[in-house]
Nucleic acid binder design. Structure first.
Lengths: 280, 280
DNA sequence: AGACCTTACGGCCGGCGTAACAATA
DNA sequence: TATTGTTACGCCGGCCGTAAGGTCT
């Protein structure tokens, strides 16, 4: 029987040219390699080398054998990788979302309903999410609209409505609602991790500049210590974001309200069934 | 390291469904298989089976692993096969010929010029010969015409001319030459192993019946004990075929003379060079 | 009872490293 | 002299088969 280890030896010899170098790379003794090569010749039943007194070189048989050896080793690696990936996939629920708020809720639900599973999550734009769902990179994705495909299970997953949060004394502090274009030109604080929302202010308020904050603490600190307006959503407020004494002004643009939908492939449904049975 | 032997065990278990049956087929003990499977799980680092007290079944990981194992085993087999074939090809000169007479000469020459090589030879029709040459099934082929391809080395390899051999007293015994159609309708002895020649009499003499002899002794015996005409060639005569006291009548059809050509792929030329340097 | 899987135990084969040797550049 | 490949030798680990135990049909 061809020892798998010997194929590695063969490939190493092919790569490094001498038994000594190959032995060094393989962390084994050089006589051991001599023996491996002899053993291989014996198992192939044909000579694989030209031998001179202190030089060993492949003949045509050897070159061919080494090529095959590399392919077999590669395929063995692929096997290990794929089986491990399958196993991991079986123990993981991967959630992709267009925005962080509904993602956090979904992750919490998933962790609660499937305590033995690993929950992974990330925010992406809608298109890569949909592609990723079909490629089974995600078991579940959350979109700000209802996807239309008979191969998908879909349920609503809450809404999120955006407000302006302005300091007392701001010119819109007393408004019962404004359109985004009315705020256009005014500089604003903007939290970085807001998913698909990042497009909206830049489209509707092209003349504003946005001071993007990556860090949540810095963001909240600036809210209380500056008079720059910022965005906030009802869902974020429910998630304990502190806004000091800001005044909320409703945004009248219809795009300021999103209705989330979570979706999974029907074939994946059994794996995440409980998440869909949950009442929204 | 994944032992190659264990992949066989895995494949056997996939095929036979229980460790016991697989062990029997593999001619090893059943506890040994239990250990192999455990070892595999350990090396994959993931579970491959559902275990109940007295039943072992693949889970999804295991099914995938078994599929890969089969493919790797298959590829290992292919590797052995191909390397051995390459080695054999390196030690063999394979000659394909359209007719036995020039083949015999070529085989004798090859055996003399390359005493360390194995010479293999066979008679085929022209089309499979040409295909076989390009597929490197043959290093050399012998055709009754000159092939036209710049990738080939070609040299003439003698001629062969057909005669009728008739007994004294036959109606054509005194002829200085006849066309085959003049003999049409008359039954003839025909030796079986004549390569591409077998077409000619059947085309030109559709009303004759041919008493085909496979055995050379029987053929020669019938020649001396019957009055049926037969074919013979100058080349066969030079090769010691005995015709008792038959009279040779030249055949006037131009197809009755063949000029042989031997050909090899240019890339194979170094291997058979001496045969082409030989004077025809 | 029979089929099946697992664990424990002891023997043995095979591959490893060290050491010594031979040849080459 | 440094590098390289081969051979000899003794050790040790890992794999195997046997035996025994437990579960399910």
């Amino acid at each position: 029987m061809i020892e798998h280890e010997y194929l590695k030896h063969l490939a190493a010899f092919a790569e490094y040219g001498t038994l000594s170098k190959a032995a060094e790379k393989l962390h084994i003794s050089q006589p051991s390699l001599t023996r491996s090569m002899k053993k291989l010749e014996e198992e192939f039943g044909v000579p694989l080398f030209f031998r001179t007194k202190n030089r060993l070189e492949f003949n045509e048989n050897g070159k061919l054998a080494a090529d095959y050896a590399k392919r077999i080793l590669e395929q063995t690696g692929v096997m290990l990788e794929r089986v491990r990936a399958l196993d991991r996939a079986g123990r993981t629920i991967a959630i992709g979302s267009c925005a962080p708020i509904p993602m956090l809720k979904a992750v919490r639900d998933a962790a609660h309903l499937y305590p033995e599973m690993t929950i992974s999550s990330e925010c992406r734009d809608c298109d890569p999410l949909i592609e990723g769902l079909y490629a089974e990179l995600y078991q579940i994705i959350i979109l700000p609209f209802r996807p239309d495909d008979k191969d998908l299970h879909v349920r609503e997953a809450g809404t999120e409505t955006l407000y302006f949060a302005v300091p007392a004394g701001h010119r819109f502090a007393g408004s019962s609602g404004i359109y985004m274009k009315e705020m256009d030109g005014e500089n604003m604080l903007l939290y970085a991790d807001i998913g698909f929302w990042h497009r909206l202010p830049r489209e509707k308020m092209p003349h504003s500049r946005f001071l993007v904050q990556t860090d949540r603490f810095a963001f909240e600190e600036l809210i209380s210590s500056s008079i720059l307006p910022c965005f906030v959503s009802d869902a974020a407020l429910a998630d304990d974001w502190s806004l000091a004494d800001r005044i909320l002004v409703p945004i009248l643009d219809p795009e300021a309200k999103a209705t989330y939908h979570m979706a999974c492939l029907k074939k994946q449904f059994p794996k995440v069934r409980k998440l869909f049975q949950l009442k929204p």
